[in-house]
C-alpha cells in the first residue's frame, strides 16, 4: 500500500474564540531551523490586534467574574487536554525548533506541569496576597487582589526555541487572577501557539479569554502598547524590540508593565500579582 498523502494544517489566528485569517490577508513562511518550509502562518496586522483587544475586553467580565474554583478547573482542564495531545505538540516543536524528541517532550511536559501549577493558584493567591486590615475604627476592612483587565503579552522569542513553554509561562499567570490576554507568539516558532489556542478552545476556556496573534512583534506591539483599552503590558519577550519606546507609549494610559527578561520567565506568584490590582473595601461595623 502506498503512503497516504498527508493533510497539512492551516495555521490561523485565534481571536474571540474563532480562528480567523489575518484581516490583511497576509501570511509568512514558517520554516525549520534549516530553512525548510513548514507552514504559512497568519501575519497579524494592527487591525487584528485591535479586534483581539475588543474580544479580550468582551470576555473580561465573564472570566474575571467566574469563581476562582471554576477558573482553576478550566486551567487544569487545559493541562488535561494538552496531556492528551503531547505527541502533536512534540512533533511541532521538533520540526519548528529543531529540538530532539527528548527535548521536545520535555518542553511539552514542562508546559503541562506549568498549567497545573498555575491552575492551583486561582483560589489561593487572593489569600496569600490579600489582607484583613486592622484599622483603628469600627470598620470591616479587607484588601484583595483583583485582575487588572486586558493584558497584552509579547511572548518569549527564543532564538533556539521555547515556543510552547515561553507562551505558557507568560499567558498562564495572567489568566490566574481573571485577566484576559492578547498574546503575540514567538515569531519564528508560532505553530505550537496556534495549536495551543485549539487546545484552549476545547478546554472550556471562554472565547476571547486568550487571543493569539502570530506575526511580527515589532509591528504589532506598538499598537498594543498604545491601545487605551489595554490595561497591562507584559514585555517579557520584547528584549529585542525598542522596548523602552513601548514602555513610554504604555505610560500614556498608565499601563502596568513587566519589563523584558531573557529566557523563559520562571514561575512565580509575583507574575500573577503583576497583573492584579489590590482592592480595599471598607464597611461600617456596629451592633446598634
Amino acid at each position: 500500500m502506498a503512503d497516504r498523502l498527508s493533510i497539512p494544517k492551516t495555521y490561523k489566528l485565534a481571536i474571540g474564540g474563532a480562528f480567523p485569517r489575518s484581516e490583511s490577508g497576509r501570511t509568512y513562511e514558517v520554516v525549520t531551523p534549516k530553512g525548510a518550509f513548514l507552514a504559512n502562518a497568519a501575519l497579524a496586522s494592527r487591525k487584528d490586534a485591535r479586534d483581539a483587544v475588543v474580544a479580550a475586553r468582551a470576555a473580561f467580565s465573564g472570566w474575571a467574574g467566574a469563581t476562582a474554583y471554576n477558573r482553576g478547573q478550566v486551567l487544569y482542564r487545559i493541562a488535561e487536554v494538552l496531556e492528551g495531545r503531547r505527541a502533536q505538540f512534540a512533533d511541532e516543536i521538533r520540526a519548528s525548533e529543531g529540538a530532539t524528541a527528548l527535548q521536545a517532550a520535555a518542553q511539552v511536559d514542562a508546559a503541562i506541569d506549568l498549567w497545573v501549577w498555575y491552575a492551583g493558584w486561582t483560589d489561593k493567591f487572593t489569600q496569600v496576597a490579600g489582607s484583613g486590615n486592622p484599622v483603628a475604627g469600627p470598620y470591616f476592612n479587607l484588601s484583595v487582589p483583583e485582575p487588572t483587565g486586558v493584558v497584552a503579552i509579547v511572548a518569549p522569542q527564543e532564538p533556539k526555541g521555547a515556543s510552547l513553554l515561553g507562551l505558557v509561562a507568560t499567558v498562564a499567570p495572567a489568566l490566574v487572577a481573571g485577566n484576559t490576554v492578547v498574546v503575540v507568539a514567538d515569531r519564528a516558532h508560532p505553530l505550537s501557539a496556534i495549536s495551543l489556542a485549539e487546545v484552549l478552545a476545547t478546554s472550556d476556556v471562554p472565547g476571547g479569554v486568550v487571543n493569539v496573534l502570530t506575526g511580527s512583534p515589532a509591528e504589532i506591539a506598538p499598537w498594543l502598547a498604545a491601545h487605551a483599552d489595554v490595561n497591562a503590558l507584559d514585555l517579557s519577550g520584547a528584549g529585542a524590540l525598542d522596548w523602552v519606546d513601548l514602555e513610554i507609549a504604555a505610560a500614556d494610559t498608565l499601563k502596568r508593565i513587566v519589563s523584558p527578561e531573557p529566557g523563559v520567565p520562571s514561575r512565580s506568584l509575583q507574575r500573577i500579582l503583576a497583573f492584579t490590582e489590590t482592592k480595599t473595601v471598607w464597611h461600617t461595623k456596629s451592633l446598634l
Binding site: V135, Y139, T278, K279, T280, V281, W282
Partner: peptide, 21 residues
C-alpha cells in the same frame, strides 16, 4: 482601588490605598 461602603474618605495606615487604571 478603595471602596467605602456606607462610609467615605476613611484612611488608616494598615489599609492599602491606591488606584486602578
Amino acid at each position: 482601588g478603595v471602596i467605602w461602603a456606607n462610609t467615605f474618605n476613611r484612611f488608616d495606615p494598615s489599609s492599602p490605598f491606591g488606584g486602578y487604571k
